[in-house]
Write a protein that binds this DNA or RNA. Structure first.
Lengths: 325, 325
DNA sequence: TTGTAAGCGTTATCAG
DNA sequence: CTGATAACGCTTACAA
């Protein structure tokens, strides 16, 4: 920056202003500065800027996995809002272990990001303490937690699972099985929603209807195998994972089971794939894009000092009825 | 840090050492420092650290899109290598426009990341100049470029497309159609490989066999529609996109076309889905995980001052023959 | 509108 | 092994 200043024949302060708030520098000088910047190939040092100004234009997004394309919509929502405002998004993957999330959060705080969006809603106490201690604005958006760290923009996993279960019951299915990933916090929450619905319907909670499976397409096949072996009376399967539902459909195909004749299948997330398999799969459509956009909005409001009327935003969900149920 | 130093009754320098190179501080002091750190909930400021030490433990990864799960393997490869060494990975999405990539690269350089991994291999001149001017170590890993910026760890799109086309010819297919995304740089490169193969086989380049489609499942359906309308003699379709191949398969199903009887289908990337549809789709398996891992390795070698024997690494590919051809 | 001085929180360097 | 001091490259706050 010193070089730029010399070349433009101004002080470093003027260069700084020309870069951060061009309006505040007279046209002539500004042009001289900017062309000096260009000629020297100068790249602003945001490290020093953030250190000095105690604020950063970087927003961190912490996702359980990048393998799952459902998060792509959220990423897009966040970056669509951030980009025009000059903020930058950095995404990091953290798995389902709170310990790993803690490490990622620590790294983001150490970089002094301007704000953080967390998909997870189960955090280690140390992570919560770091977050609150550092004063970093935080939005959680993977669920509506009972005890939010700061702000929330999400849908309720429990409500959504309940609604889909009731939907299946309304369609006349009597023995609705529920399959979730083992050791997945959101799967566990969804399972509670399924329980809620059964209780409301006055149906007994049959443990044979609850299935724990591994991830990916294989999980769907496992669920079908479980039903065939343990609970053949089941007439509907509600999969708490998206890819899992497709795996289940493929497995039915292999076994010659008619869907929905022999078994109806419903899924928890509305991947594009759900519309393209045959039969198309009934799904919960979640406001993934909106979640990203609103999360970013809330973060920026807080960063720019506007207080928020509603720090917990429930964005709802939608049941998309298709041929599989 | 000042508070930590006071509480532990040492100088700030000792705190710094206890944090960055614990071995160099005597056990007693180290313990006092670390417990002060814990009690105060102190989080190291990496901004200041990087500014002062002119080096950063953050590695940036620039991907065209997070929507596509093929990149998940690469991300995993990179972070598996980085994590145990105390480096942090930050991923950013940049689309296919060199201008957007330029913005993302500028942001990473402005944050003074320790190194950068780029999936794209077509960069704006400004981006290249910034990269080289800043001295940031760079690995490109989406293709093997003719004129690399710095290091490369990838496979060759052109070679891979050529190999698959030859494979289809060897299986006896006479009229091999090729479908690629419109306006996708890698699609264009793959198209060249297809041309290479046809030339080697002494077959004429029939423009009716080259199809440009839109992204997603819809693109596959478009390709089939094109063949039905313009080039019904085609007996094989090589899709330069992964999801596209599945879309094509579904469309064949809808039309009652036998695969591979009426039309064989091959795809460019070996998504898990390819193994699960029926018939399973013949694919090019690319070293996605390896690409990530080796990219990270090369970056760290450079960062830590080891010179590299081979700054351009060709990791090859593999044809996986399945029922669709 | 532009410039000056001080300081952001760390580490490099050199001394003890 | 530990400490003092001067950067790192920028911005805040104030002055001109």
């Amino acid at each position: 920056m010193r070089d730029v200043a010399e070349r433009a024949g101004v002080s470093r302060m003027t260069v700084s202003r020309a870069l951060n708030d061009p309006e505040s520098v007279k046209e002539g000088l500004r042009k001289r500065v900017l062309s000096a910047v260009y000629e020297l190939g100068y790249v602003h040092n945001h490290l020093a800027r953030s250190l000095s100004s105690r604020s950063s234009k970087v927003i961190g997004l912490v996702l359980p996995s990048l393998e799952n394309s459902i998060f792509a919509q959220t990423v897009k929502g966040v970056s669509d809002l951030l980009r025009p405002l000059g903020y930058h998004l950095m995404v990091t993957e953290c798995g389902n272990e709170p310990k790993d999330e803690e490490r990622v959060i620590a790294a983001f705080i150490a970089q002094r990001v301007g704000g953080l969006i967390l998909h997870g809603t189960h955090h280690s106490p140390v992570a919560v303490r770091m977050l609150q201690g550092s004063g970093t604005p935080v939005v959680e958006n993977g669920d509506i937690p009972a005890d939010p760290i700061d702000m929330v923009a999400s849908y309720s996993n429990r409500e959504a699972a309940r609604a889909m279960t009731l939907h299946l019951a309304r369609l006349g299915y009597q023995q609705i099985a529920f399959a979730a990933l083992a050791a997945n916090p959101r799967g566990a929450t969804r399972s509670l929603g399924y329980d809620d619905a059964l209780a409301e319907l006055g149906r007994p909670a049959d443990p044979r209807l609850k299935i724990e499976v591994s991830r990916g397409f294989a999980g769907g096949a496992e669920a079908i195998a479980h039903i065939a072996a343990i609970m053949p009376e089941a007439d509907a399967l509600f999969c708490a994972g998206d890819v899992m539902a497709v795996g289940a459909l493929f497995e039915c195909d292999r076994r010659g089971w008619k869907v929905p004749g022999r078994l109806a299948i419903a899924s928890f997330d509305d991947l594009e794939l759900m519309r393209h398999v045959s039969p198309a799969i009934t799904s919960l459509h979640l406001p993934r894009y909106e979640m990203g956009k609103r999360s970013a909005e809330m973060l920026l409001s807080r960063i720019e000092g506007r207080e928020l009327p509603v720090p917990v935003l429930d964005l709802g969900f939608e049941i998309v009825q298709r041929a599989s149920t």
